[in-house]
Computed example of a mutant assay.
Amino acid sequence: METKTKDLLIIFTKNPETGKVKTRLAKDVGDEAALEIYKFLLKHTISVTKDLDVQKEVWFSEGIEEDQLWDSSVYSKKLQKGKDLGARMQYAFEEGFENGFRNIIIIGSDMYDLETSDLENAFILLKNKEYVIGPAADGGYYLLGMRTLEPNIFQNKEWGTSTVLHETLNDLKGKNIALTDLRNDVDLFTDIKDHEDFQKFLKK
């Protein structure tokens, strides 16, 4: 693949299927509302990434979607591979470096707090740092950037728990890293119950 830029944004997403997305949130709002909220978050992710001046890849969890949500002229579409989230992220980074990219950032697709400027800033930081991490309020991270592959950070983690950020920072002790602003992701009812933009999904 010919790369016009050395910057790559990887977006990890789950295929939007009822009962398979936002399962913790669904316990309070139901499967249908959880799916609609997830689609709403996907559209937000597209809105803040589509005009970013970097190469963009969307990696699907189950199968590559050929629908119109992710514009194929903007996003390359790929399939995640690996037994857990860590292995899947490592595989995506490895492929990115093999394809000639130098600055690679990965994000999820459900961060309503994320703005285009956050991603632009992270790529700027990555020009002078080996690693950039966006800490999430739940103890994980919403953004990970690398110029050098560090496999340790993808191994021996309890993904989805509050220990992930702390353990990742331990893995990178002594490395040249930058932290971006703290952001809150949408996993639980408490994350959205008082948020104006989500009220339309919560009305019975």
Rank of each mutant, 00 (worst) to 15 (best):
G160L: 06
R102I: 05
A137V: 09
N121W: 09
I64R: 07
I37Q: 06
K175N: 10
D113N: 11
L179I: 06
K4C: 07
D181I: 10
K200T: 13
G140P: 07
D53Y: 11
S117Y: 11
S117G: 04
L9I: 07
D110K: 02
E65W: 08
K20H: 13
G140E: 03
K175F: 12
K175A: 08
L169A: 06
V54S: 05
T163A: 08
G139F: 07
K14P: 09
L179V: 07
R147S: 01
D194Y: 14
I192E: 06
T180Q: 13
H166C: 08
E57F: 04
S76F: 14
Y91P: 00
L188R: 11
L79A: 04
E36V: 08
F101K: 02
A137I: 10
D67C: 10
E36G: 13
E94C: 04
I133H: 00
N121V: 02
G139K: 03
P151A: 07
E2W: 14
G19V: 12
A33P: 04
A136K: 04
V74E: 05
E196G: 11
A33D: 12
D67F: 15
D7Q: 07
G100Y: 07
D53K: 15
K81I: 11
Q80T: 06
V54F: 03
L165S: 02
N15G: 14
K129G: 00
K56M: 09
D118I: 09
N170P: 03
G134R: 00
S47V: 12
K4R: 09
V58W: 11
F189T: 09
Q68W: 09
Q68M: 12
I106G: 00
A92M: 05
W159L: 03
G174V: 08
A87E: 06
V58Q: 09
H166D: 14
S76D: 10
L202Y: 14
L42A: 05
P151W: 08
Q68F: 09
D7G: 01
D187F: 12
E94T: 08
N128Q: 10
T18E: 15
L149E: 00
N128Y: 10
L202H: 14
F201I: 09
K50D: 14
D118C: 05
D71V: 03
I11R: 00
E115V: 07
G108T: 03
K129L: 00
G160H: 08
A87P: 00
T180K: 13
T18A: 13
K50Y: 15
G96V: 01
I107K: 00
D181M: 12
N103L: 07
G63E: 13
K77M: 02
N184P: 01
K204A: 15
